[in-house]
């Protein structure tokens, strides 16, 4: 069984000539089934750019990305859209829910797009709402829900079509620490429950490191693997709160 995600020598530059910004610089890594990978790094280091490429929303300037053994950088726009729909779930900092639709419909639309409708769709939604503790919110509009609930709803939408990979960009940044923790634990349990093969989370939030199997540190477009325990220790020392 090949790795769900293999990134090989991927670079992305913006602009041209003197003003070229090399947002991602020859990055290589791979993610195995069942893994939760957290990417950390300072603002502007290229995290979102990298995640956009993994999510088939942005083409690399060079390098290859293969997801489930399929080389995705060369696919047509149409094929990439289809690929996203079937294989990739997204969770964003701003929840990006559709405010005209209620909670159930926000998930149903993703299912419908993938050709799942009617009873099958409703059953899937209620299963996800049970898992994510959203059942009492099923007919509420996103704007009437708390931030944590909205992000859980976004996770339900991301999981709807049983994606192989979930990509999350700062999923806890808009939430208080309790809601952020709940969201991370739910995403982690979705991986454990086999709802998705792997989870990649980009964050500034060091508390998230708890759930990581592996941590990738990014700086100026370059990625290197770091030991989660070391980072946590450094973080704790810096905060002056040992043992936390």
């Amino acid at each position: 069984m090949s790795s769900p995600l293999v990134v090989h020598d991927v670079s992305k530059s913006f602009g041209s000539g003197d003003s070229t910004v090399r947002a991602v610089d020859r990055v290589s890594f791979q993610v195995e089934e069942g893994e939760v990978v957290v990417i950390i790094g300072p603002s502007g280091c290229g995290k979102t750019t990298l995640l956009s490429m993994l999510g088939c929303l942005l083409r690399p300037t060079s390098g290859e990305i293969s997801i489930l053994g399929e080389e995705v950088t060369g696919l047509s726009e149409r094929r990439r859209a289809r690929f996203r729909l079937r294989h990739i779930g997204f969770v964003f900092q701003s929840f990006n829910l559709i405010s005209a639709l209620n909670a159930t419909e926000n998930v149903e639309i993703a299912l419908n797009l993938a050709g799942v409708a009617g009873t099958a769709a409703r059953r899937r939604v209620s299963g996800l709402f049970d898992l994510l503790e959203l059942t009492p919110r099923a007919t509420m509009r996103p704007n009437d829900m708390s931030g944590g609930e909205q992000q859980r709803l976004a996770i339900a939408r991301a999981l709807a079509n049983r994606p192989d990979i979930i990509l999350a960009d700062e999923p806890t940044a808009s939430l208080d620490s309790h809601a952020g923790r709940v969201v991370m634990e739910l995403m982690q349990s979705a991986v454990r429950a086999g709802e998705t093969k792997s989870l990649i989370v980009v964050t500034h939030d060091m508390r998230i490191l708890d759930v990581a199997n592996r941590v990738l540190a990014m700086e100026d477009g370059v990625v290197r693997e770091v030991d989660a325990a070391t980072i946590r220790q450094a973080q704790a020392n810096q905060a002056g709160a040992p043992g936390l």
């Binding site: 289809r82 729909l85 559709i98």
Partner: peptide, 13 residues
């Protein structure tokens, strides 16, 4: 923005 979100999720044009 909704249309952008749907595009990102993979809705066909």
């Amino acid at each position: 923005r909704d249309f952008g979100v749907l595009k990102a999720i993979g809705a066909p044009q």
